[in-house]
Computed example of a mutant assay.
Amino acid sequence: MQPVITHPWDISETEALRLQQSLAAKVIKEDQFNEIKLVAGVDVAYAKESDKLVAAVVILDAATLEVIETATATDNAQFPYIPGLFSFRELPPLIKAFDQLQHTPDLIICDGQGYAHPRRFGLACHLGVIFDVPTIGCGKTRLLGKHQEPDKERGAVAPLIDNDEVIGNVLRTQTNINPTYVSIGHRFSLATACEWILNLSPKYRLPETTRQADQAVRKALSH
């Protein structure tokens, strides 16, 4: 699986900001996908005391949530650690991992932000646009925006708002458990994104895609 849009990664902060703004214009905010049979989770972990990154892509059956395939890749960080520009650091090893896959996912869930980003272009958007694949951002923490607390029941949502714009939803995936922060990545509406995150989170706070990708990077880092 190869990106349909390529660009350099070893660039300056100013160039990255400019590129982010131009690519953000390509984000599609409504549902544009076919039947979703395979879903992927992605995660990137940082090695201690080195600039090594480990990326994992795990593909699951969308109906059973059974793991179909796992790919991992290591890389050296090409871009500095700058908040709001993490995708420039984390996507190169993820692209390497995607290149190894035998299956092509119909939907990718990112452990982090999509549209809920200062320039509306977090990792989920960047990944979705360069691969032209439907993506969703589902973060454990809020990057920006304000919200009311959603009700305590599973499925409750509250809008995440920044500058009078709804940039995501605060979604309760399990009753009486801390919510997640869901935003669109690419080719997905916010309402459909929340439906899918609930489907992928039958037992735990985080979607099974994220849990499996996290386990895969931890395993790869320990070797």
Rank of each mutant, 00 (worst) to 15 (best):
M1N: 04
T6A: 14
E15N: 06
L19M: 12
Q21H: 14
Q21G: 06
S22H: 11
S22F: 10
A25K: 11
V27H: 02
K29F: 02
D31E: 05
Q32A: 14
Q32P: 09
N34D: 15
K37R: 12
L38E: 07
G41I: 00
A45G: 02
A47S: 09
S50M: 04
L53W: 00
A55D: 02
V57Y: 00
I59D: 01
E69G: 01
A71F: 00
A71R: 00
A73F: 02
N76V: 06
A77F: 03
F86V: 09
F88M: 07
E90Q: 09
L91E: 06
L91V: 12
L94V: 03
K96M: 01
F98Q: 00
Q102M: 07
Q102D: 08
D106H: 11
D106A: 06
D106C: 06
I109C: 08
C110W: 02
Q113F: 01
G114Y: 04
F121W: 11
A124P: 04
C125D: 08
H126L: 08
F131T: 05
D132H: 08
D132I: 08
V133E: 03
G137P: 12
C138E: 15
G139Y: 12
T141K: 13
L143Q: 09
E149Y: 12
R154I: 07
A156C: 09
A158N: 04
L171M: 05
N176W: 08
T180E: 08
Y181T: 12
I184R: 06
G185N: 13
H186K: 14
A191R: 10
C194K: 15
S201C: 04
Y204L: 12
L206Y: 10
A216N: 05
R218I: 02
K219P: 02
K219Y: 03
S222G: 12
S222N: 14
